[in-house]
């Protein structure tokens, strides 16, 4: 693996559509559940323990064997009851597929079927990581961390939170991201049904409400 390649993949400035997604934070702010830094901390912890674990696991599994992308994609459908979140995940998958295929060869996603379906973001992330020569744990780290950066920066933009404080929260969760990535890599070859499926009811509910708004700043 190349550490620099991992940094390129995990960089928030990678043009892969992430800047327009708040990871559910815009809905949480609007509902009054997130008002300040302490709420953002709780939000990030909950998101990492749920969406972060699932995303990391599926990214690791797709990186270990990109040919499983269809099964993994179906597994994410079954783990994502919210149509709005499925749509957001596929939109980000499509954007990352565009970026990733320009940066590295990603044979698993060259197929017309993958082009047509635009797999869920964690699947694309794993396949792109594989194409970039990274290992499943790298993909899982990028995935787990990636579930946090969107809401953290959205907190800065939506609530005017201190950007240093928001990034301090990210730094504080680094150890948790590492542990999640270790676990995800260890289980990367597991059958899809036994991979983690941690749900976050308020992320589902918030995403569905958000999708009905006429005025919103973020895509999800």
């Amino acid at each position: 693996m190349s550490l620099t390649t991992l940094l390129v993949l995990a960089d928030g400035r990678l043009p892969a559509g992430g800047h327009a997604h708040s990871g559910g934070l815009e809905a949480a702010v609007s509902s009054g559940r997130v008002r300040g830094m302490a709420d953002l901390d709780g939000f990030l912890q909950g998101r990492l323990a749920t969406a972060g674990v699932v995303t990391a696991s599926f990214a690791a599994a797709a990186c270990a064997d990109p040919q499983r992308w269809r099964d993994l994609d179906a597994g994410l459908d079954a783990r994502t009851p919210s149509p709005a979140l499925r749509k957001a995940s596929r939109a980000q998958g499509r954007a990352l597929m565009r970026a990733g295929r320009i940066l590295w060869p990603v044979p698993a996603l060259d197929r017309p079927a993958a082009q047509r379906i635009a797999p869920h973001h964690p699947v694309v992330l794993g396949a792109v990581a594989h194409g970039a020569g990274l290992v499943p744990r790298d993909a899982a780290v990028a995935a787990a961390y990636g579930t946090l950066t969107g809401p953290a920066t959205a907190g800065v933009r939506l609530l005017g939170l201190d950007p240093f404080g928001a990034h301090a929260l990210l730094a504080g969760l680094a150890g948790a991201c590492d542990r999640i990535a270790d676990e995800a890599a260890a289980r990367a070859g597991d059958p899809v049904d036994t991979l983690p499926a941690a749900g976050a009811p308020l992320l589902d509910i918030g995403a569905e409400q958000h999708a009905t708004w006429e005025v919103r700043l973020f895509a999800s």
């Binding site: 559910g24 949480a28 559940r33 997130v34 709420d39 901390d41 709780g42 939000f43 990030l44 912890q45 909950g46 998101r47 990492l48 323990a49 749920t50 948790a176 976050a200 009811p201 308020l202 992320l203």
Partner: peptide, 11 residues
């Protein structure tokens, strides 16, 4: 369960 009672999970 980290964050279970926080604003992302059960609030």
């Amino acid at each position: 369960a980290p964050g279970w009672s926080g604003p992302a999970v059960l609030g």
